[in-house]
Design a protein around this nucleic acid. Sequence first.
DNA 1: TATTGTTATACTCTATAACTATA
DNA 2: TATAGTTATAGAGTATAACAATA
Lengths: 151, 151
Amino acid sequence: MSDTDKHCVALDRVLELVVVLNEDMKRSLAARGLTVSRTHLLWVLAHGDPITQKSLADALRVSPRTITGLVDGLVATGFVTREPHPFDRRAILVTLTDAGKDVMSDFERDHEQLARALFADMDDGDFDGFVAGLDVLLVRLREGLSGSSGL
Amino acid sequence: MSDTDKHCVALDRVLELVVVLNEDMKRSLAARGLTVSRTHLLWVLAHGDPITQKSLADALRVSPRTITGLVDGLVATGFVTREPHPFDRRAILVTLTDAGKDVMSDFERDHEQLARALFADMDDGDFDGFVAGLDVLLVRLREGLSGSSGL
DNA sequence: TATTGTTATACTCTATAACTATA
DNA sequence: TATAGTTATAGAGTATAACAATA
């Protein structure tokens, strides 16, 4: 098999991993009344203080209008509240509720459990090579390849 | 660093790869007037004969209604046509146009180019370890982990 | 005048249910 | 009666543009 063929097979496997992980993610989040986008927003809240919708839009790199929708959904399911900003009456502070904190704790616990399940008992050399390869891919994807992948 | 910590870092990096690859994919497809779902449909067409919408629904594991929408979009952009089924007047054969074949050829060419760009000059040991690790992950994700990942 | 968040509008992907035409 | 594909309706994520309130 040529090097190019080997590389294509490897890329196909990476893409398959992307698909499988994505489906698994969506399924387990849906079981908690969450979506990927809403969880991303919750994750930002869980790793910082209450924050304005404008800041959330910057953090998620999404339009302010999209944040309105995501926060609407999270308010409806009780994971966040909209609180007045102490000294800017235009702004709103999106704030995690106890239910929101709980769901994020579960999330992080399951995240650790998945990491153990995936990598436990993996050959040390394989693990190190895997991580090293992963780093190379991330660096190359971030540098200059953007937009030309043709995936 | 504990093993669990190392494993969590590795999983985080996998998830980052998922995000970066997904964004890159969407961007380069959008430049051709395509989306991920429509490309998936086109890919099935490109690797087989003209096929009914029902069969496409099964292949993409999506509802028949969703196929109607995807085909509508692909007809509008000129990548497929709806042709009558030769002997079942209920059914429709979705068929690649020349433009559809062209866009899929470009897609496959760019796919190879990306594979080369990502893996070329990668240390042999890293490459083999990466692929081996990838296989382990895929096997474990497909077996039993489904739905309990908590990502 | 600039910023924050909203409403208005639109496009994509997804689903279920009801319906039409055909088998 | 069952199947192929549609319309009807709905929810989620995304965007831009116009607009309100406030800075």
